[in-house]
Design a protein around this nucleic acid. Sequence first.
DNA 1: ACTTTACTCAACCAATTAGTTGACTATAAT
DNA 2: ATTATAGTCAACTAATTGGTTGAGTAAAGT
Lengths: 112, 112
Amino acid sequence: MTVHEMPHLDSTFSALSDSTRRAIVARLADGEATLSDLAEPFEMSLTAVSKHMRVLSDAGLVDIEKRGRTKHCRLRGAPIKEAVDWLSKYEAFWIDRFDALARHLAKEDSKT
Amino acid sequence: MTVHEMPHLDSTFSALSDSTRRAIVARLADGEATLSDLAEPFEMSLTAVSKHMRVLSDAGLVDIEKRGRTKHCRLRGAPIKEAVDWLSKYEAFWIDRFDALARHLAKEDSKT
DNA sequence: ACTTTACTCAACCAATTAGTTGACTATAAT
DNA sequence: ATTATAGTCAACTAATTGGTTGAGTAAAGT
């Protein structure tokens, strides 16, 4: 299994490392929203949210479409899938460790 | 479904947003390694790798044990699982969109 | 005892980040 | 025609990041 440089993952993980942006992602999973909609729950300027959207957009996590004077944002699943695919390579690892723990506990249990 | 502030995710995603650190994670999935082992493939100082390990360790992604003069590092699966758990909430989203695409293509196809 | 190895620490640097404000443009509503 | 809304842009700030070097400590090898 070659390492496969995945430059997408840099921006995807980086974008998701901010809780404001994760909240925005969560919000967009419920459907399209405008920038102002997205900004409303946060105690920060619209400019700040706009910058967050830029980060999400650059990472390909979000699609922004200008309609009149509003900008409508949608979640894009592809980069999330790439992230999960990368992380899943190590799923076996922690499953193994949980298995090991389960075996350990079972052994302890059989002693009583 | 409440949003559930997950402060771990900040550091987990942030730690994984660097390709050097992802390479280290990949390496550790094959088994324990010392700091020098981990540093060897990279064209950067041991200090730099040590800092990367500090980031991974702070994120709980890695366990560092001092043995004599060497430090032995192991991968910890738990934060990766948390990340996958968070991302999986949006798995349905992109599956739906691929379904939608498939339906769209099927419809286009039936027109010819 | 001396030298090499494995690693840390502090200081520094350049670039990036997450936020602000104030001034601006473009669209929509009255 | 005015006014309000939606959003951008540029300039600034403070904190963080990813890297460096040089000097130091502690353990192991010879």
